[in-house]
Write a protein that binds this DNA or RNA. Sequence first.
DNA 1: TTATAACCGAGACGGTACGTCTAGTCTTAAA
DNA 2: TTTAAGACTAGACGTACCGTCTCGGTTATAA
Lengths: 187, 187, 187, 187
Amino acid sequence: MARRSTATKVHRAVVDMVGSAPVAAITMEGIAERAGVSKQTLYRSWASTGAILCDALLARSVDARGAVVVPDSGDLHVDLRFLALAMVEELTDREQGPLLRAVTAEVLSDDALGSQVREHLLHPQLRGIAERFRAANVADPDAAAELFVGPIFHRWLLRTRPFAEGWAEGHAARVVRAVQATDDAGA
Amino acid sequence: MARRSTATKVHRAVVDMVGSAPVAAITMEGIAERAGVSKQTLYRSWASTGAILCDALLARSVDARGAVVVPDSGDLHVDLRFLALAMVEELTDREQGPLLRAVTAEVLSDDALGSQVREHLLHPQLRGIAERFRAANVADPDAAAELFVGPIFHRWLLRTRPFAEGWAEGHAARVVRAVQATDDAGA
Amino acid sequence: MARRSTATKVHRAVVDMVGSAPVAAITMEGIAERAGVSKQTLYRSWASTGAILCDALLARSVDARGAVVVPDSGDLHVDLRFLALAMVEELTDREQGPLLRAVTAEVLSDDALGSQVREHLLHPQLRGIAERFRAANVADPDAAAELFVGPIFHRWLLRTRPFAEGWAEGHAARVVRAVQATDDAGA
Amino acid sequence: MARRSTATKVHRAVVDMVGSAPVAAITMEGIAERAGVSKQTLYRSWASTGAILCDALLARSVDARGAVVVPDSGDLHVDLRFLALAMVEELTDREQGPLLRAVTAEVLSDDALGSQVREHLLHPQLRGIAERFRAANVADPDAAAELFVGPIFHRWLLRTRPFAEGWAEGHAARVVRAVQATDDAGA
DNA sequence: TTATAACCGAGACGGTACGTCTAGTCTTAAA
DNA sequence: TTTAAGACTAGACGTACCGTCTCGGTTATAA
């Protein structure tokens, strides 16, 4: 009970902080104070702010019953459109977005954390999407998954352009036509 | 002369450091010591380690006469294949790779730096590639550029998979077929 | 039985520790671990490391049948010589010495402990020695006791000089002549 | 100049603290805060609270032109009485007393500090007093000095008894008669 | 040629956060 | 019921960098 409560308080704290302060301001001491918990308790369970952020992110995904749920309605275009919209919505969510961004930042300078994120988030996501492509008889479904995910990630992380109204649908359509073409070409 | 020499020493230092140490170990004090320069001298010219890294990156690009040179041989497929190979080579270069990764990391937690990188690196790159697509009569060349760049960036930054032999060529082929399909579909 | 056994283990632990480590390394946690006892058990019986050390010291004295046994052979000089030698031997004992030193250190920053040490060790010691002087008809036996004890304590605690061979005997002789002189002068 | 000012502030702080708080409350962080100085500045100049206390003590002695000034009026009794009174006064001084006590406490658990205190305070003091005895033709002046200093130190440090009115004079008289007796005996 | 300035290295300084350690309190599980 | 085990808040430890700030000692031009 106490353990659960500690983790909950800590997750709450980092989610709040990540949404209202620059990433650099996420410190072990700050989290401890915000969560009403001692530093020692943090270090007992987590090795770094990155680990806490990652844990908070995974906890949310678990709460939401699986991070990646790729729909399969039989119509690839419909499913991809839905998925693109869901991803964009998640990435721009007031709480989820900054959390994902912060975790991504930590991943860049912490290999161990990177492995964990890849294993628990990225690979499952890519695998799930590739599976959907495979079900649609698309040639090289893994590459198709990257073709789908890559541009969304690029635009979001680097903020090259905001996600305009209709962009997600357009991207889905583009990828659908692309892989169908690939399919045709392969046929 | 003196200024030039200072900047040169500093650039040299960060490039060396970024290749041989974790990103987090790049500190103003460390750079100063490594470059044989005083902290004050660093702060006179740069506001943060991010600014130095960015400057070092831009200096290299300038040395190499423009960061993005998109070839135009008339054959889109040939050109994209060349470009993909060049990008992968740059991203996996022993010096350039870690530098780009470090700058990317800094960008995630420094908006001002982000704007600068977008303006001087990302947008020119996307614009150049889009231009090539436009010349090939591809519909929505901006989206095509993102379709090309996104997956390369995603795979590189998140290390979801190493760049296998032949991957770049495969990716170029995929994008070519995709946009040609788009073209056909649009026609 | 259990209590006794606990106290024994704890005393054993602190005596061992005090002889083989700097005083500052004597911590409640360390003692608990060394004695194979939980922290809670320590706190149940003692308020601080000082209290444990003091307790260990008193336990030893009790084992040795009274801390201060001042001999009375009738010859003051002989008795003081014996006493001085015994004191020096105790203070330089491999186990007793460090223990006494550690307790003295704690006394300096813990008034409650100081009262206890004064009551159970220092005053009985001074009283016993004074009694011996009184039996020898020395004027102001309390002051004589301090004259005897003070220099030994000073040299031992502050390590101004090591206890050389023959020093104790010399000191006893000095004090004897001094108080006899006092006696003569008083007579 | 800045350095001087830093040391001054720090000395002021520890003297204030040592007089108004238990010894255990003297911490590097506390001193830093009280002195309005950063921790790093403390550690740059001193290795421990003991070193600071010792430094503060020595600084005071230097200010007062020499820690030990043994008078020599020709009359040993008069001089010793003066000296005893001066020592008792110093030991019971509102500022000097607690400082000396704190330094003594630190000395017990820090050998390096102990050497320094012995060299700069204790040995000069003993030497000075022994010199006075030697001038009075007392046999074994070093032992005489310890006979004089030991009981004062014992009573003060262990608080076996408060310094009553007239005690210092009595002690001086006792020591005088003692060493004269020794002298007579030797003659 | 000598001032006079600009610039530099060195590093002290007040700070913030790091990650570790111990103090004491309190809860749980087994004997 | 007493214990060992150990989680928990609190706070000091000593270190690393931060960004600001003198300090002297070059150069490098202008008088």
